[in-house]
């Protein structure tokens, strides 16, 4: 299951540096899109279901 090649604790900093110079741009993009969609979905319910259902309290 655990391939020793990937879990090598001795990944040295130069190797990391060579691979990770773009990180975490991908996480910003993916998580950013997910959260933006979440806010949009929330706003749709707020504007098009909640407010039209009228005052209450």
């Amino acid at each position: 299951m655990n391939n020793p090649a990937d879990t090598d604790p001795d990944i040295t900093d130069p190797t990391l540096a060579a691979h990770l110079d773009e990180a975490p741009s991908g996480a910003f993009a993916l998580a950013g899109i997910a959260v933006a969609l979440l806010l949009v979905a929330w706003a749709i319910i707020y504007l098009f279901v909640f407010l039209p259902r009228g005052p209450v309290g």
Binding site: V35, L39, Y46, F50, L51, P55
Partner: peptide, 21 residues
């Protein structure tokens, strides 16, 4: 983002009076 939602909720509760009973 959380503050934006909070603002919208508070506005709804104060202006069109949409509150929990």
């Amino acid at each position: 983002a959380a503050m934006m939602m909070l603002f919208a909720i508070v506005w709804a509760s104060l202006s069109p009076h949409m509150n929990p009973p």
